[in-house]
Amino acid sequence: MPVSKRHRLQSWARACGLGLLLIGGVTVQAQSNPTPSPQSARDQCEKSFKPSTGQPGKDVVWVPTNDALVTRMLEMAKVGKNDLVYDLGAGDGKIAIAAAKQFGARAVGVEYNPDMAQLAQCMVRAEGVTEKVNVIQGDIFETDFSKASVVTLYLLPELNMRLRPTLLKMRPGTRVVSHSFLMDDWRPDESSVSTDGAAYLWIVPADVAGKWTFKQQGGKDSFDVELTQTFQKLSGTAGKGKEEITNAEMRGNRIEMMFSEGDVHTRVVGQLTGDRIEADVTRNDKSSTYIGTRR
């Protein structure tokens, strides 16, 4: 009696140890090894190395940042899909992974401890974000992170201060977020403190110090401004009477300031590009565009 094709296929499958389902004449291979869940994949990562809170590192001990604070830090920085986030002192890669999974950004973690860096790389694979996240083993003080649009930190104040000159040279508008620790007299642009912990945001300011002349486009009005700058805060004088400017600051490339000459109250809001400011100037209730040039 001839053996049917289906019988031969089933016999072959049993011999090979394969589980096959025959449905309507179509052969479908059963999934004998389902894809592991992210949690089980993370657990596998920690079989080789599992960090412990307080373990010593190069310059700091390792303390994990809780999930709620990680999200809040990235929200404060307004992280989006076009951002490149550098997490300096990446630990197990949590912040870099969250930047990719929750906000769609690209991210690079820099971790000095080789075991932690390897763990973080494994966590990146476990979370399925290898196309967006890279964790490198290296020294944050020797790593070039100048292309970052967002920098995240969980370092001690003295380490923040060592990084501060480099951060201030970054592209204006770069956002810097620190967990818990400040940067001495460079005051944050935004602070957020809750039971989850403290987070602080700085926006790298452009250099606007100097003498400026603002001229009205399509008009004859003009005024001079002399600015002194301390981080994002501005001071100085404006107008013929050299009146003191107030409410003056830089937020990246954006400048804002006010001054009064007698009964004329002036508010300037503009965007700096090199030695040129294109500004919306409101003098009393009338607004028009002015172009400021640095002398």
Rank of each mutant, 00 (worst) to 15 (best):
G91W: 01
K101A: 09
Y112N: 07
V110P: 03
A105Y: 05
M76R: 08
K81A: 15
K78M: 10
R106F: 08
Q102Y: 14
L84V: 12
V108E: 05
G91L: 02
K94V: 02
A100F: 11
E111Y: 03
K101Q: 13
M73H: 05
A107S: 13
K78P: 02
L88F: 14
M76V: 10
L74I: 12
Q102F: 14
N113W: 05
I97L: 04
G104V: 00
G104N: 05
G109P: 05
D92Y: 01
L74Y: 11
R106S: 15
K94I: 02
V79L: 02
A90C: 02
N113Y: 07
I95F: 09
L84K: 11
Y86E: 09
V85G: 07
A99K: 11
L74G: 13
G80C: 10
A107M: 04
I95Y: 11
G80N: 14
V79R: 07
E75M: 13
V85E: 02
N82W: 12
K78S: 15
D87R: 12
K101P: 03
V108R: 13
I95M: 12
K78W: 04
Y112V: 05
A96L: 00
V110Y: 03
L88N: 11
K81Q: 15
A99Q: 09
G80P: 02
L74V: 12
L74A: 10
V85D: 04
D92T: 00
I97C: 06
M76F: 06
F103R: 09
Y86Q: 12
L74S: 12
L74D: 10
A90N: 03
K78N: 15
A90T: 00
A77M: 10
L88G: 12
I97V: 14
G109Y: 05
M76D: 02
K101W: 00
K78H: 14
A90L: 01
A99R: 10
D83A: 09
K81V: 14
G104P: 03
E75Y: 08
K101G: 01
M76W: 04
V79I: 03
M76T: 12
A98D: 08
Y112I: 02
V108S: 07
I95W: 09
N82A: 15
L84D: 05
Y112M: 02
L88D: 10
A99P: 05
A98C: 13
Q102C: 14
Y86M: 07
A98G: 07
M76G: 09
Q102H: 15
K101I: 05
K101F: 02
A96E: 03
K101M: 01
G80E: 04
A96S: 15
G93S: 01
N82L: 13
F103V: 04
F103T: 06
R106N: 14
D83W: 10
A105E: 00
A105I: 01
